[in-house]
Computed example of a mutant assay.
Amino acid sequence: MEALSLSYPAVGAIAAAFIAGLTSLLVTILAKDHKVSEFRQEWINDLRNDAAELVSHLSITSLILRYQQMLGDAGKDVPQVEMATYKEFVVAQACILRIRMRLNPKDHSGLLEALQKLDFGPEGTLHHHPHTLRAFTEEVRKVISSEWDSIKKGEPWVRAVKFSAIATILLSVCAVGWKLVAS
């Protein structure tokens, strides 16, 4: 019985096909990772915009209410600003809802707790202490920083695939080089 032997051209063709397949897989994974990073970047920008809009509207509302209270305490006529306050309330409530729908309760519990303190539900109020607004802003910064780190590093499974692909290619090159040197 004659042993099956592979010639160098056949081994080369098989190795080339294997490397081409790995390269194609790696390119596909990197393209997907890039698209996920784009979506995450958009998510970060939207969260930042909504948080800034929310804090600015709540700050304006607090200033309006303090101004009304100061005038009332001084015995002066209080201008009718209910309509302005109502508009601020509507915009702030929309921001709160958009932010809440973006967040995952498992991953963003600190920000959701800070957001709950700003909500106008049964326990909420239109007057917010600056400390509460700063605490919310700090929680937003933490979430954005964490998401930026994820973008920079990439998803853990993508890093593992990249490492595996590079290791496989290097091992393949070393094996082919050793085979050439040994013969």
Rank of each mutant, 00 (worst) to 15 (best):
G75M: 06
G75A: 05
G75V: 05
G75R: 05
K76Q: 12
K76V: 03
K76F: 13
D77C: 00
D77A: 09
V78L: 03
V78T: 00
P79I: 01
Q80M: 05
Q80C: 04
V81I: 12
V81R: 07
V81N: 07
E82H: 10
E82P: 00
M83N: 12
M83E: 15
A84I: 11
A84N: 07
T85Y: 08
T85F: 08
T85R: 12
T85E: 12
Y86N: 12
Y86H: 14
Y86K: 13
Y86G: 05
K87P: 00
K87W: 12
V90N: 10
V91H: 04
A92S: 15
A92M: 08
Q93T: 15
Q93L: 11
Q93E: 13
A94N: 10
A94F: 08
A94P: 01
A94W: 04
C95V: 03
C95Q: 06
I96E: 02
I96A: 00
L97K: 14
I99F: 04
I99S: 04
I99T: 03
R100D: 02
R100G: 01
R102P: 02
R102F: 00
L103C: 06
L103V: 09
L103S: 03
L103Y: 04
L103T: 06
L103D: 00
N104P: 13
P105L: 09
K106W: 13
D107T: 10
H108K: 11
H108T: 12
H108S: 14
S109H: 13
S109E: 14
G110L: 13
G110E: 15
L111I: 13
L111K: 09
L112Y: 04
L112M: 13
A114I: 05
Q116E: 11
Q116R: 14
Q116H: 13
Q116W: 10
K117H: 06
K117F: 02
K117C: 01
D119P: 02
D119M: 06
G121T: 14
G121D: 15
G121V: 10
G121F: 09
P122D: 15
E123K: 03
G124K: 08
G124N: 11
G124H: 11
T125M: 01
T125N: 01
L126A: 08
H127M: 08
H127L: 12
H128M: 08
H128I: 08
H128Q: 15
H129Y: 09
H129C: 03
H131E: 09
T132M: 00
T132L: 02
L133C: 02
R134W: 05
A135I: 11
V140N: 07
R141E: 04
V143Y: 00
I144R: 02
I144F: 01
I144K: 02
S145D: 14
S145W: 10
S145I: 11
S146R: 09
S146Q: 08
E147T: 02
E147L: 06
D149Q: 14
D149C: 09
S150C: 06
S150I: 06
S150K: 07
I151E: 06
K153G: 00
K153S: 09
G154F: 15
